[in-house]
Design a protein around this nucleic acid. Structure first.
Lengths: 154, 154
DNA sequence: TGATATTCATTCGTATACAAACGATATGCG
DNA sequence: CGCATATCGTTTGTATACGAATGAATATCA
């Protein structure tokens, strides 16, 4: 009975765990830091004060427009509250237009404006450069491997 | 002069780029999503309403205490403004104690309280489980590979 | 049809995340 | 010593990020 592998479920922890655990070697720490570096590269290169999420919303909207706000959020992995803020700012800039859905009174139909299209065209090469810069420490094979591993844990 | 590889610097983009570019296949999108999933797993498993950054600050402080607020921020990859908010909330909970540095009037010395130590001990096993859950879709070899690739792009 | 459930968008509250500006304090060097 | 520089912590403003609650509109199904 004594010396079992797990003590009283989650009440106490053996000193070994305390000693061995290092936050900065956990996957979560690396994911957070890697994302931070990517966002920093994006901010440094991208023009028009566009953020990563704004860019994601813009380019995804280009693919699937016209669509509803929540649908755009789902396709860009954003919460309903988050996508609303992003869309609001894009609308305020004149990049996105909104209209009520005649078929569904709940929906808010989104579409790109000419300015929105132009903003994408103006920055598309930079966006590609951001991806390339972020992956620059890796070989071509490593890049594919990283993408594949990240895809698996998403 | 006409037909150069890059048109007027950053003004226009070829249609090929516009067609080929998919946000949800870029490294930034995967990093953001993978981090989101990790945070979701952390929130679901971890007790005491601890966030990922609060946990990082607590456990790192345990390693290097006593230390200054900005130093803790550097060691946990947090901005000075960010670490301040995190520390403030940990202090409000009684997990962290602050004291002025007798040697340096600018510094705020941080250390763990007994409650802070207890919170770590109480949740350390869960933290390990969070890492394991996040990496559960991967084999042991893939996990090491992912960590290594992320380390390279940090 | 009518009650129930679902979806959509909004709002509120909390928590990162970071740029920028600020005052206070230390440190460096001539 | 005195000044330029750097560091520390704080504050403000903007932008994600998400849980939770809400009201309006739609869908489902007994």
């Amino acid at each position: 009975m004594a010396g079992a592998k797990k003590s009283d479920s989650a009440s106490q922890a053996p000193a070994s765990d305390l000693e061995a655990y290092k936050v900065d070697q956990q996957i979560g720490f690396f994911l957070r830091q890697a994302n931070q570096r990517h966002v920093a590269i994006f901010s440094a290169l991208m023009g028009d004060r566009l953020t990563t999420t704004q860019w994601a919303a813009l380019t995804k909207l280009r693919e699937i427009q016209p669509t509803s706000q929540n649908q755009l959020g789902r396709d860009t992995a954003m919460d309903v509250a988050t996508i609303k803020g992003v869309v609001d700012r894009l609308v305020a800039r004149g990049y996105v237009a909104t209209a009520p859905d005649p078929q569904d009174g709940r929906r808010l139909i989104l579409s790109l404006t000419g300015e929105g299209e132009a903003a994408i065209a103006r920055n598309i090469k930079t966006a590609i450069a951001v991806t390339d810069d972020t992956l620059s420490p890796l070989t071509s094979g490593e890049r594919m491997m990283l993408i594949e591993l990240l895809r698996k844990i998403c």
